[in-house]
Write a protein that binds this DNA or RNA. Structure first.
Lengths: 356, 356
DNA sequence: CTGTTAGCGCATTCAC
DNA sequence: GTGAATGCGCTAACAG
């Protein structure tokens, strides 16, 4: 029943070599004769050897230099949760000494991103964790990292034509689709539904929002409700300008039963409606930010769709450690986080510390 | 920046004793003079010592005997997921040799539970993990375990008047409340809503379902919808008897818009309705079992509320190991798992392996 | 009661 | 290229 744990020494004996040689093969460190390699690999295929992570951690004395490059965020915002997960992981795996450098950038400013990316190479890290925003710039830095043989991974979203060791993200299309389904159901199929789109500097729309919107519309088409969808915009940077416009829009479209916001700024709309006593409209937005939490609690936002940013950060560090320690991919490809539906009643239990 | 990790030897030096003594104090193994204890504790309060779990695991050669006593389940059912989490943890912490005995019982049969509980003590385990169903019986076995000084913890639900080292559960009251809110919203406030209650041998109702029902009714009272709630029963053990009764019930109450099932057996109702072409009724039930998954996929169940059983099982083993290793409570009190709302669109991302 | 000693499984020198 | 030797932080067994 209890399968005897086989250790590095055991397989050394079975292959007729020493433990040191087995270790060299297991870790791909070279300096091994083809003969020994073959002998060891034959044994390896026969037995089910598993690293003892504890023992590895104990005796591995090197300290890993990792650079984390993401948008900067105020406490309570999305990226702040990712960082919390990263720091949590560093704490949890504190036996493995890792020294973490941060290179933050303003996600609304492409030059800030460029300069953050440039600083990465200067730090000569052993690995990089990237929270990407701008596609082209990210592809550029990634090809440099590829050239320098520095492993990297993404959190939050995937960038095409790059070679990360893995990615922790969400299916944004599916979450948009789900938003549509949920909002449509909650509105009872009556009236109409509005999308509020956030205006961005540079007239650029975030790929994440675009994907979500695509999923949302596909649901509506399937539900034959797409002709009842209305659109408006609002500003994140100058929210004071929103109020009049938004109220006008609502007034001019009195049949609106629900509002979808494809990013984490739902609270801006919710606050305005609430302040004007408009509370018959269902609002759904994204991400468990502190402003959104407030709105869930006071009932002005009906539901939030969330993608576990802390877990993304945590797993990013974990995956990177495993990669560095064992020098090989420990994961298949990309990791899709669950899409959590959060309402007032289940909110409290998502705010607890998510330890392993 | 990088706080120097202080080790057991360091604090031994600082307290003017040997590492062995420090270890004895850290682990509450006794055989320590008050003087040494005081000296060491003074140092302990000053510095921030943290066990190195890896090192502990490596050098701890004892094997722990743990008995797991839960309802028995077929693959794909709720309790099966808990067990999967348990086995996953045993695998993950396989350096710590733990030998696990199982004592299963039929959760719909109180006598079966009694006999399973009785078998626990006979196995003389060092620790017990209990998935309780029947309140009184559980209190009885717990007081025996208390007397024998055997630590135990609960998964799935809390039982009053017991002294577990911790509990991994969900706020069942809140999830009942949430079910009410969700179902009520989805039904648009029209018609009426039915609760279907599962019959049990021994005429005893499960603590979990009772709590959920309480939360559900409290929501309905607050929503002034409680006079529109109807109740019926169904049998889990002899499902073939259900069909006629359920269809009758539906026929006699044509205004029913939604059905709540306070356990994981929603698929039984959903299948019957679907087979008879009744598809205007929203059904919400609990737990991501394979039967329920099927119904979510074919649309006969609208939503499931879930409580991460794998994680509960995993954390149960983890907490127990820490307790046994360090001989003290490592957790505050009770751990409430999030209540996940799962619908067709976000289902796929909950089915992935949930590793640490 | 206490200090010392000998490992645990593995990674990393360093001679050979 | 390779094996033997050393140490990681901690636990356990033993001699005092």
């Amino acid at each position: 029943m209890v399968r005897q744990k086989i250790k590095i020494k055991d397989i050394a004996k079975m292959a007729g070599v020493s433990a040191g040689t087995v270790d060299r093969i297991l870790h791909n460190r070279g300096n091994v004769s083809p003969a020994s390699r073959e002998a060891v690999e034959k044994v390896l295929n026969k037995v089910n050897y598993k690293f003892n992570l504890h023992a590895s951690a104990i005796s591995c004395r090197k300290t890993f230099k990792i650079t984390v490059c993401t948008p900067i965020a105020s406490p309570g915002e999305y990226w702040s949760s990712i960082l919390a997960g990263i720091e949590h992981a560093i704490e949890e795996f504190s036996d493995i000494s890792i020294s973490c450098n941060y290179a933050f950038y303003n996600q609304y400013d492409i030059y800030s991103c460029k300069s953050a990316y440039n600083s990465i190479l200067a730090q000569a890290p052993q690995a990089v964790i990237i929270g990407p925003t701008f596609i082209h710039e990210t592809q550029e830095i990634c090809s440099k990292l590829d050239a320098a043989n520095i492993p990297y991974l993404f959190v939050d979203s995937i960038i095409e034509e790059t070679r990360p060791i893995t990615t922790f993200t969400t299916d944004h299309y599916a979450s948009g689709f789900l938003l549509g389904r949920l909002l449509h159901s909650l509105c009872g199929g009556e009236g109409s539904i509005a999308i509020f789109r956030a205006l961005r500097t540079g007239n650029e729309r975030a790929s994440t929002s675009l994907e979500r919107r695509r999923g949302f519309m596909d649901y509506m088409i399937r539900a034959k409700f797409n002709h009842r969808i209305k659109e408006s915009t609002f500003s994140v940077l100058t929210p004071e300008e929103n109020e009049k416009e938004i109220l006008n829009f609502i007034q001019n479209n009195p049949d609106i039963q629900g509002i979808a916001i494809m990013n984490s700024r739902g609270y801006i709309i919710a606050d305005i409606l609430r302040n004007h006593g408009i509370n018959h409209i269902q609002i759904i937005s994204f991400d468990l930010t502190s402003n959104n939490i407030r709105c869930i609690e006071n009932g002005s936002i009906t539901a939030l769709l969330c993608q576990r940013p802390e877990l993304q950060g945590f797993n990013a560090i974990k995956a990177m450690i495993q990669y560095l320690l064992y020098n090989r991919n420990v994961t298949e490809t990309h990791h899709m986080m669950p899409i959590d539906i959060i309402m007032k009643e289940n909110l409290p239990y998502y705010q607890e510390d998510k330890t392993i």
